[in-house]
Design a protein around this nucleic acid. Structure first.
Length: 283
DNA sequence: ATCTCCCCCTGTGAGC
DNA sequence: TGCTCACAGGGGGAGA
């Protein structure tokens, strides 16, 4: 799925057409995604003003004037596409709903926001804004990587004694929010750490060094508009381009990009998911 | 408490 | 061209 940079890019794309705008009509075109939609979702959305669009980890929250927030997760293949926006003004003729267009929001500015998700691993829910952080899906999530709560001390403490591979530890959303399979690979490459090293075996210096690298990789990816592989699109349909900056992800067999290194990128499977790394640079 | 595995679902690309 | 198969960015939950 969209990892943190892709979700943040989507949020930024939605902001101009959703924040401060009213949902004139919500069309919920099937009963569920990964789970059933909440009761009467279309009625509860229709007529609400969007006060704010937030991101928490890989979730987007739209705080509404009704006191509820719409919680959205894009799963692996979810997209939020904006139509009707053209040269700064909106046109009213939207394309007919396409395959896998599951939820359609018509905004009072004339824009239409369409949630499309082929694999339906995404989810949507409505929850009271005041207690949003206590939602079961949000309550256990760890610190945001750009926040003050995520720091060297925290990561050292969380890694201590862990027998899980560092790759799995960084994917653990309780330790740090927002990383997924791609960006973990890129972080570990920059850190010079093999993905199968055990988190608890790293020195404190090695663990601490991950903190700025995580921020660096995510920051660069957000600036690039995220990474476009199979499914991901920005809300305007444009492609992100960070995938061209991948140093190891998806590059099995290709030369290691480190100057002077003669190694080639290898792929291993950990917990059923691919990991990519340079066996010479990453130890 | 931690960790691994399986599963949800559809689309796509590689290999034949 | 067409078929089959492996694999894909997440993450909850079962079971070891």
């Amino acid at each position: 799925m969209p990892e943190l940079p892709e979700v943040e890019t989507v949020r930024r794309g939605l902001e101009p057409v959703m924040t401060g705008a009213r949902i004139l009509q919500a069309d919920v075109r099937r009963p569920d995604l990964r789970w059933a939609f909440p009761e009467r979702m279309a009625e509860r959305l229709t007529g609400a003003d969007v006060l704010r669009l937030r991101r928490r980890s890989k979730y987007i929250l739209a705080d509404l004037s009704t006191g509820e927030s719409l919680l959205v997760h894009l799963g692996m293949s979810g997209r939020m596409l904006v139509s009707g926006a053209m040269l700064g003004q909106f046109v009213q003729n939207h394309p007919a709903p396409a395959k896998h267009d599951h939820v359609v929001l018509d905004m009072d500015g004339g824009a239409r926001v369409t949630f499309n998700d082929a694999r339906r691993f995404g989810m949507m829910d409505l929850l009271p804004t005041a207690t949003a952080e206590q939602h079961p899906l949000l309550a256990g999530i760890g610190p945001e990587p750009f926040g003050n709560d995520f720091n060297e001390e925290w990561l050292i403490q969380r890694f201590k004694g862990r027998k899980t591979p560092v790759k799995s530890a960084l994917l653990d959303q309780k330790i740090v929010a927002g990383l997924g399979n791609i960006y973990v690979a890129e972080v570990l490459f920059r850190a010079g750490l093999r993905p199968d090293r055990l988190a608890g075996d790293l020195t404190e210096a090695q663990t601490a060094a991950l903190v700025p690298l995580i921020r660096q990789v995510l920051d660069e990816a957000i600036l690039a508009g995220g990474s476009s592989l199979r499914d991901y699109r920005q809300s305007d349909g444009e492609l992100g381009y960070f995938q061209h900056a991948f140093r190891v992800y998806g590059r099995e067999g290709q030369p290691c990009p480190t100057p002077g290194c003669t190694g080639h990128v290898e792929r291993i499977v950990q917990s059923g998911r691919s990991s990519f790394y340079c066996p010479q640079c990453q130890r």
